Simulated scan of single mutants.
Amino acid sequence: MEQAAPTVVPTKPKKVKALNQGYWSKYGIFYLMMAPALIVILLNNYIPMVGSIIAFKKITYESSSFIENFVNGKWVGWKNFEFLFKTSDAWRITRNTVLYNVVFIILNLVIGVGAALLFNMMRSKRLAKLHQSIMFLPFFLSWVIVSYLVYAFLNPSLGIMNMTVLKWFGAEDVMWYSDSTWWPLILPILNVWKGIGWYAVLYLAAIIGIDKEYYEAATIDGASRWRQIWSVTIPLIRPVIITLTVLQIGKIFYADFGMFFNVTRNAGALYETTLIIDTYVYQGFLVTGNIGLSSAAGFYQAIIGFLLVFGSNLIIRRISKDDALF
């Protein structure tokens, strides 16, 4: 009786090894290129997250070493959070941070898209580039420099507003750094002036990437310029609009510390309308020395920001799955 010849089956590890060798030889250079950025993100963003433990501890300064304080600090559970939310500051800093950022998001979207549309419609490309450069220039200025420019306008005794503008209109002088009434208007204006060039350039890049055949077809159908904007331009740049808006929503609990601290000169009289979570954490950490309370405020800020990103993306995913970030 003849015996069947044994079949030879290639071993799986050799295939996997060959596959891995081919994968790394093909894509290894890209991982090498990403390595510096990944290391920076790891050191700057992820390792410091271990410090969130401080929000649940009581730092007593009994030891001269911060590491010993961090390791041996007494666990207090949620007491830092309870103390935070029992004060009136919790509501005030949350209200100011959220409302300012909502206004910033709306203005950046409306004015940014509007400016990009105007740049795109300019016939002279040289003038368009000149206007883009002029609008983009404030983005590179430090808030320290901007704060001195603002102080030149708002100085109660020598500022341009009190000495020239208000006198020209016959109005009384305003103590700008003692009266918090005007700052909900001043800060959004400064935010738009400094950052709108960045958003305008991003939206303009998306508009320039639209195929001209869409506009030609719309023109043949008799669509006006405004109709083309609403029916062609806006729908086609919608993914960029959604991406930038979601990224801003994720930072709705974060405010620009440089603007709120330097431009307002950290004036205590303005805290009712200018105190935000970021400056509150600074005050708690460096001024009052309450590390646990400031860490609790920072932890609260991070968790809410994460939930807002996740929630806004979930809503977008249900409306239009293709436009969701993840």
Rank of each mutant, 00 (worst) to 15 (best):
I276N: 00
F30S: 05
L244D: 07
P239W: 07
L325P: 06
T97G: 10
D179T: 09
I316K: 01
K15G: 06
E213Y: 04
L185H: 11
S88R: 11
V113Q: 13
A171N: 13
S147Y: 12
W182N: 06
M161R: 10
L190V: 07
A55E: 07
G258V: 03
I67K: 06
V201S: 14
L275K: 13
F285C: 02
K26S: 10
W168I: 10
R123S: 03
A5G: 05
I319C: 08
K17H: 12
I237H: 01
L149M: 14
F140V: 12
V9H: 00
W182K: 06
N20A: 14
L204F: 11
K212W: 00
W91C: 12
G22R: 15
F136M: 09
W75L: 08
T11A: 06
G170D: 13
S231C: 05
S25K: 15
G28W: 06
A37W: 01
V102I: 14
A116W: 12
L32G: 03
I105G: 08
A55C: 04
G195V: 02
L314C: 02
L187A: 02
A255V: 11
S147G: 08
A128R: 06
N45W: 09
S231D: 08
T87W: 08
N72R: 05
K79H: 09
F261R: 02
